[in-house]
Amino acid sequence: MTTLRDILSQGVQMCLVLLLAPLLTGFVRKVKARLLRRRGPPLMQPYRDLIRLMRKDVVLADNASWLFRVIPYLMFAGTWVAASLVPTFGNGLLFSWSADLIAIIALLGSARFFQALAGMDVGTAFGGIGSSREVMIASLAEPAMLITVFSVAMIAGSTQLSNVAEFMGSDAVGLRVSLGMAFVALTIVALAENARIPVDNPATHLELTMVHEAMVLEYSGRHLALIDLSSQLKLLLYVSLIACVFLPWGTAAADAGVVRLGLGALLYLGKLVVLGFLLAVFETSIAKMRVFRIPEFLGAALMLALLATLLRFVSGSL
């Protein structure tokens, strides 16, 4: 009986992240538009975009290789698997033990690796600029993320997300400076990883500052739809990760009943709304940085994460 419940819960989770991801993006866009006193596109617009893109023909550059056509599926698969392993409404995910937090980050790293390759496949100048900058950002964001994971894992005594979430929800945590620093570091990394505003502008085109858009410039039709969906999934993943580690209240325990699960789902939606709103406010209140200012921004995250780990030793030794 429990296995059936677990399989169901895992399946619901996989579908839930897939269905919610465009909604979260639409919500952030809507809030941003309202903050700028525009009406903005309707909440459902990302779904419509995806469906429309999927129905269109793919226009492939003449010298694109087979790899270029496979990469959208690889990226989507990697991101989807990663996103379905982060606890959202409940902790008892059937396959949560198949990848811990480090493995989830590495899965996203795989997706990024292939995306950077895709940018270079057609052999255009824009693709190269995007890939080259993407790996530069990643070369700082990934270590910052890993060290953040170190500090969180040292506090929780586990890199297994379900266990981390359970520990964070318990009373044993208390207020910790290192947790606060890890939170800030994780937020900075999340902004960079999702190509959000101070680092990259998700809504820009034809600017020398673009990074993510430059890599996917040659994609069209269903391929572009998959890539868009993966980046929406990635945003949802990071928001859920922050919610699960730093706002663990209300996440249903592994053996919870249907009512608790439903409550967990409601609370999860609430967290998404709050965090998405904060993201929109942050993005409207700050300007995009020069490319070579980004290393300092991410370097600050790296330092914060290191500092958090160090402080963890102090409070851990007492």
Binding site: A61, A77, G221
Partner: peptide, 26 residues
Amino acid sequence: LSGMAAASAIHRLASDRLRRAPAWDC
């Protein structure tokens, strides 16, 4: 599995047409 499922679902339900053209490059 999820990659293949996505591929077959999209090819079957949406579109599997493809045409070649010169690179766009903005």
